[in-house]
Write a protein that binds this DNA or RNA. Structure first.
Lengths: 250, 250
DNA sequence: ATAGAAGTTGACGCAGCGTCAAGGTCAAGC
DNA sequence: GCTTGACCTTGACGCTGCGTCAACTTCTAT
């Protein structure tokens, strides 16, 4: 402490940061040392300390170093910068909140004795199978709507819904046995029922979702096995049919 | 699509990611291609696709790639990993929440016509001057306690509180005029009053806070001016006295 | 004079890829 | 047989904000 100017360690301690940080700020031009001795040592005065304290304050608010530079150098209106930053912070909090919900859901399943992802995804086509998918792709609200829809169904309606899927799978199996092509009118008619069936619950079936689902039927052995119980090759037929349907209609 | 194995772009599209990501996962050993052709091309089969989908699912939950590897390779209990991750997520959300509060407070001040940081920090020693400090260092609850304390005071009590600070500053000024040393009994007695005064409002005055405050009295011209109105050098005397006091008593 | 504290400039590391750059491969059409 | 154009490869830098060596020089105190 030489009265009016301090060494790098002095201000670092005073401001509660490290010398490395100060050298970093010097490097990016955020806070230059007041004076650099012939020996290369950095020295800072009160003005620098005040600026440093403001920098650290804004940093603790979560602003980026470039933003801080703009604010302190008067290139940016402080209030505007803070408002923009606030918005970003709120989005971040919302995003994390969604992740927390997803993790909690997954944990509940795991602890409820159900098995993770793989094994729970295809038991009787339970509606909850797409929870993660839907949650991620169309946001939680959309999923909640779907969930309410399912919860609102009567036992009979649920059975009918599941049965219809079974019928569709059976008809696909029959079509395959008859040697029908994926783009034939007959198979496309069944595919239309498949689409309608999906639409009843999701109410938002995009092209990507539909074809992706088709691919999964072939790629994932659990799906393949379920469909191929109507004859080997049924899953492939369904996938191809869904692709054709998507290309033509979606 | 050669039936059972796909090119890098094929799975990338199917799973909704990019080829760059897949090569990255290959590089860090998270997901190796099923087969690598003589030409160096990567090929993936259904198993790889399923694994990739699980990876992406966990990634969307916010897990790190190393954590995902541990979970998928069975080295880590899934539930335990998710619980740990959940905790971390909740801390993150809390942290962001605190930042949001700080930013809002700062914005309110800015828009209320008060000026940022610098100019608002020293008008009559308004209690709110330490808001940022206190908020950051001792959490919001501590600050709220302090704020409630101040709000609970009567107008008379507030005036007395401010007056006491003025008296202390005056006495420091007199001590300096008398040529007393910072570590003299007289000056230390005044310093003790300064400490007690601070303690009344903050109720948590750490050594670092006390000495830091002393440094600020000298470093920040606004403080310096306020104290040096009792004679030049008063601020320096106070700082030194506070350091001595802190070393001896805190 | 010499030790120890403090200072300096590089430069790598981290997380998770995006994004060129520079160049090989492959199916298709002329 | 040659040219496109689409797709593939392996580097390697960039981003954020410093932490953390490493290898040296300088200051301070005994």
């Amino acid at each position: 402490m030489t009265g009016t100017h301090w060494s790098i360690q002095d201000i670092a301690r005073t401001a509660g940061t490290t010398s490395r940080t100060l050298r970093h700020y010097g490097q990016i031009g955020l806070l230059e040392p007041t004076r650099v001795g012939a020996n290369g040592y950095r020295y800072y005065d009160e003005h620098a300390l005040v600026r440093l304290q403001r920098i650290l304050l804004l940093r603790d608010l979560g602003l980026s170093l470039p933003s801080i530079a703009e604010v302190l150098d008067g290139e940016q209106d402080s209030a505007a910068a803070l408002r923009a930053h606030l918005e970003w912070l709120e989005q971040e909090r919302a995003r994390i909140g969604r992740q927390i919900e997803s993790v909690r859901t997954t944990l509940r399943k795991l602890e409820g004795g159900e098995q993770l992802m793989a094994d729970e995804m295809f038991d009787g086509f339970d509606h909850t199978q797409y929870e993660q998918e839907v949650t991620e792709r169309w946001s939680k609200e959309a999923y909640d709507r779907g969930n309410r829809w399912w919860s609102a169904l009567s036992e009979q309606e649920r059975k009918a819904f599941v049965q219809e899927q079974a019928d569709i799978a059976r008809d696909f199996g029959a079509a395959r046995a008859a040697g029908l092509a994926a783009d034939s009118d007959e198979v496309q008619a069944i595919t239309a029922r498949q689409y309608a069936w999906l639409e009843r619950s999701s109410e938002q079936v995009s092209k990507a979702y539909f074809t992706g689902l088709g691919d999964m039927y072939v790629a994932d052995p659990r799906f393949t096995a379920n469909y191929d119980k109507h004859g080997e090759g049924t899953a492939v037929l369904i996938r191809d049919a869904m692709h054709v349907y998507a290309d033509r209609n979606l």
